[in-house]
């Protein structure tokens, strides 16, 4: 295709992405370098029975005016990045000096909001992704051996957890694990502990979120693997059988190698999706025990005091995280392309 034709075909989508993805990134980066104006103070002399003293009072009018004139705030450079709610260099250094063990160091780090969110996001991403791949694979193998007639029915119900709105899906599970809900009260009976609550402890909250993550995303892995299973070379399977390979050996040496590229694909998509984990934290009302990078930005933006600079700083750091996460993939795709052209 000629450059000129390409340009006209691609223009609308390029404009959309330029205006609403690229420019916002610039806007986020800019905002992260500024901070809200401090309030303007004026010295007022206060005289009463005991004499006079000067006090500083907030000049609301001047503050409002300054904020209206320069909505971005005042320039602080990288100040937002190194403050306590973000990279917190000084606090990390202090924690390093003070704590005598690695565990103690991590405990201290865990109290800093950004690191707390980062640790949860990474733990979530790297436990949910392998678990959902394994579960999805098992379901695919199981469904593949089913009777043709009930396959469609099973696939229909399997798709539901994935297709449902994430916030809605997490709410549905959240109501069930409530101590007055069916799962919550069953667990209380099972462990014989009437005070057991999945919401009360941080560890259990993390486990619930991870269970939700696997429940939500396993169908995706299942569908992809199931489609892959339809293209497993039958001759290879047949010859493996004739050579006396057991069922397990056939799966291990024929089916799994055939599905390997699909595993990479699922892992890539799911790493991206799980890294942005956000809705379940809102749905499970879990922000006291678990925050992710996305939920951290959300809580900055939400509510009366919109902490735009703080949210922007977290966003920039998150975007950097995404790029780092994607780096191996980018390099691989680049090599693939080189091979093709």
């Amino acid at each position: 295709m000629k450059h000129r034709t390409f340009f006209w075909f691609f223009l609308p989508t390029a404009l959309a992405m330029l205006l609403f993805i690229f420019l916002p990134i610039i806007s986020v980066v800019t905002q992260s370098l500024f901070i809200d104006h401090e309030q303007v103070f004026v010295e007022v002399e206060n005289c009463n029975f005991f004499g006079c003293n000067t006090v500083s009072v907030v000049d609301t009018e001047a503050t409002e005016q300054l904020r209206a004139e320069q909505p971005l705030g005042r320039f602080v450079g990288l100040g937002n990045y190194i403050n306590r709610s973000h990279l917190a260099f000084s606090e990390v250094g202090e924690a390093w000096d003070k704590s005598d063990s690695v565990g103690g160091f991590f405990n201290n780090i865990f109290n800093l909001p950004l690191y707390r969110a980062l640790i949860f996001t990474l733990v979530f991403t790297f436990t949910v992704t392998p678990l959902l791949i394994i579960l999805g694979f098992c379901i695919a193998i199981g469904v593949n051996s089913l009777n043709q007639k009930i396959k469609g029915f099973v696939i229909f119900f399997s798709l539901l957890p994935m297709i449902v709105t994430p916030l809605v899906g997490s709410l549905i599970l959240f109501w069930m694990i409530d101590s007055r809900g069916i799962i919550g009260s069953s667990l209380q009976v099972l462990f014989d502990d009437p005070d057991l609550s999945l919401k009360a402890s941080a560890t259990l909250t993390w486990v619930t979120l991870i269970v939700y993550g696997v429940w939500h995303a396993a169908p995706f892995a299942f569908v992809v693997f199931y489609a892959g299973l339809q293209t497993v070379p039958q001759d290879t399977l047949e010859s493996a059988m004739i050579d006396g390979a057991s069922r397990w050996e056939r799966i291990r040496y024929v089916v799994i190698p055939h599905l390997a590229p699909l595993v990479t694909f699922v892992a890539l998509i799911q790493l991206m999706d799980n890294f942005r984990v956000f809705e379940p934290i809102v749905g499970f009302n879990a922000s006291a025990h678990a925050t992710s990078l996305s939920s951290m930005i959300y809580s900055d933006l939400d509510g009366e005091s919109r902490l735009l600079s703080s949210a922007a700083t977290s966003s920039v750091l998150t975007i950097i995280g995404v790029v780092i996460l994607l780096f191996p993939v980018l390099i691989r795709t680049w090599r693939d392309w080189d091979r093709k052209y």
Binding site: F20, V28, F278, I297, L308, L330, T333
Partner: peptide, 28 residues
């Protein structure tokens, strides 16, 4: 052409970014 590939890669990076990070950029 090579730029088609780079555009796709750029789209992949955009695809991976959590939408909420962009929302912070829209607000102001």
């Amino acid at each position: 052409f090579r730029y088609a590939f780079w555009l796709l890669i750029l789209a992949l990076v955009f695809r991976a970014m959590p939408p909420i990070t962009l929302v912070a950029g829209y607000m102001l």
